Simulated assay, not measured.
Amino acid sequence: MTPQLEAAIAAIQPLSPTERLQLLQILTQSDSVSNSQPDIKVLSAQFWQGISLQQLRATQNPSTVHSLKDLAADFWPAEDSIEDFLAFLRKQRQEAS
């Protein structure tokens, strides 16, 4: 830890929790402004401008699904039957209506 950081921490110690929180918010805000984040108007214009399908594909690098088995997930608990689940679902829907 640098001497400057130690001095800053020592200077903060007498502050109340509310004052510490305010200081943290000020430091966080000034840090985010100095990180040169893009202007919201620029981001909005870029969003509505749109991009071509080829550009979108290049940025996302999608994979091709060759079989539905590739999408299958094995998450259903063996001790729970589908019939019990469907009975529960019907009961919930009847209670809701």
Rank of each mutant, 00 (worst) to 15 (best):
1 M>D: 10
2 T>R: 04
2 T>H: 11
3 P>N: 08
3 P>E: 11
5 L>V: 13
6 E>C: 04
6 E>G: 05
7 A>S: 08
10 A>T: 02
10 A>R: 10
10 A>Q: 00
15 L>T: 01
18 T>R: 02
21 L>C: 00
22 Q>F: 02
23 L>M: 00
24 L>Q: 03
27 L>T: 01
28 T>M: 11
32 S>T: 00
33 V>S: 09
33 V>W: 04
35 N>L: 09
38 P>K: 02
41 K>Y: 10
42 V>E: 09
44 S>V: 04
45 A>G: 07
46 Q>A: 12
48 W>E: 09
49 Q>K: 05
51 I>P: 01
56 L>W: 15
58 A>F: 03
59 T>M: 02
61 N>A: 03
62 P>T: 13
65 V>M: 09
68 L>M: 12
71 L>A: 12
72 A>N: 13
76 W>N: 06
76 W>H: 09
77 P>L: 04
78 A>M: 03
78 A>I: 04
79 E>Q: 15
80 D>F: 11
84 D>P: 06
85 F>W: 15
86 L>E: 15
86 L>R: 15
87 A>D: 11
88 F>T: 04
89 L>M: 05
91 K>H: 12
92 Q>R: 15
93 R>N: 02
95 E>N: 12
96 A>S: 06
97 S>H: 15
97 S>C: 09
97 S>W: 07
